[in-house]
Amino acid sequence: MTALVPRPSAELSTDRHDPRDDWPDEARTLANHLTAIYGDQDPLPTIAGGWIARQKSRHTRRAYVRTFKTWEEYARGTGVHPFTAKRMLAEAYSKRIAKTPTRLGKLPEDTTVAQALSAASSFYGYAIDVEATDYDPFAKVPRPDIDPDYSPTEGMTEAETMRLIETARDWAPRSYALVTVLYLLGPRIDEVLSLDVTQLGYDRGHRTLPLTLKGNKRKAVPVPPLALDALLAYLGGRTDGPLFTTETGRRWTQPEVWKHLRVLARRAGIPQAASIKPHTLRHQFITDNLANGVPLQDVQDAVSHTDPRTTQRYNRRRRQLDNHPAYALAAKLAGRLQREETGR
């Protein structure tokens, strides 16, 4: 067999490709941030960036970046490198985040604390897999006990939902389009804000939007006429760019949407206006559809829950409030008090 001999002109390229250039933006940004602190000889920036890069959804990547930065800053503030941290420091960090108020001035929910600890442990699990360390300081840190039926999202009544939608309609076309899309389709806010105008499609008589779900899965959902009319009125013939933009044409961001929804909620007189968020409308999509008799499986499929118990949790919380025995007991007591007043 004749050996292959390279031609004299065939030389190996001296150009080297950095694999980190193929990482998502969130991973590169975190790696650069850590390199500025630890230098390019420390393995932490590359390991942390690689861990973020392997997360499938942008929502997860962003959440993990935020929680990791909080842990890294805490460890560094005590003079400890994250790769030399021990369980006692991780437990102290757990107590710190549990008592640190959120932007709203409230203590974080148990679910928030549990997610932060889980994210930190996920980082160390990845670091162990790639042989950057052999120890996870968060492995045995106690997690808060989470009630499977509990949801921190505060629901609205049908009348409150209508007031919010009417306020959005009277405020601006963009506001009305956003609120109707969130309420009538039930998506997560990051799924909506990542869309471009060109993705408004058509499939067998339905106008559709392709939502990118958890795990980077895609699913086309129908846009009902009311939401479609609001969306087209807002776009005003625009055929490119982000679906939802600022006045300057920049893609609308989640913090900006949260702030805008709370402005609308205050104008609509919603009692919990200060804490309303995009997920509130997803919550309403689920509970209102179940209350209207839509089968649980259909609602579960619409919101892409893998477990029907997750969908049912929203409905169970509503029933726990609506049917709470405190109301029956109070009504009976009120009747007795009224009879006593009448008899005097």
Rank of each mutant, 00 (worst) to 15 (best):
D40W: 03
T248W: 11
A114Q: 04
I52G: 03
L200V: 13
T246R: 12
A139W: 03
D147C: 06
R87T: 15
A119F: 03
L12D: 05
G155S: 10
S275A: 07
D22N: 13
Y183V: 05
A172S: 15
R87H: 12
D40V: 05
Q312C: 06
P255Q: 08
P242M: 03
P101H: 10
A3T: 09
R96E: 11
A132D: 09
I47G: 01
Q338R: 14
R28D: 03
Q320N: 11
R339I: 14
D322L: 12
P255A: 05
A233R: 13
L107H: 00
L264M: 04
T100G: 03
P295F: 02
A63I: 00
G155C: 05
R319W: 12
L185C: 15
T133V: 11
A116K: 08
L264R: 00
T311S: 01
D15W: 11
G39A: 03
R318D: 08
Q115M: 13
R207L: 01
E340G: 15
V221S: 13
P144F: 06
R58A: 15
L281M: 00
L232P: 02
L235Q: 01
H81D: 11
G39I: 00
S118Q: 08
Q272H: 14
V197H: 04
V303A: 01
L185M: 08
D196W: 04
R66G: 09
K214M: 02
T280N: 05
T157H: 07
R66Q: 11
W258V: 01
T153C: 03
P6K: 12
T248E: 13
T67E: 14
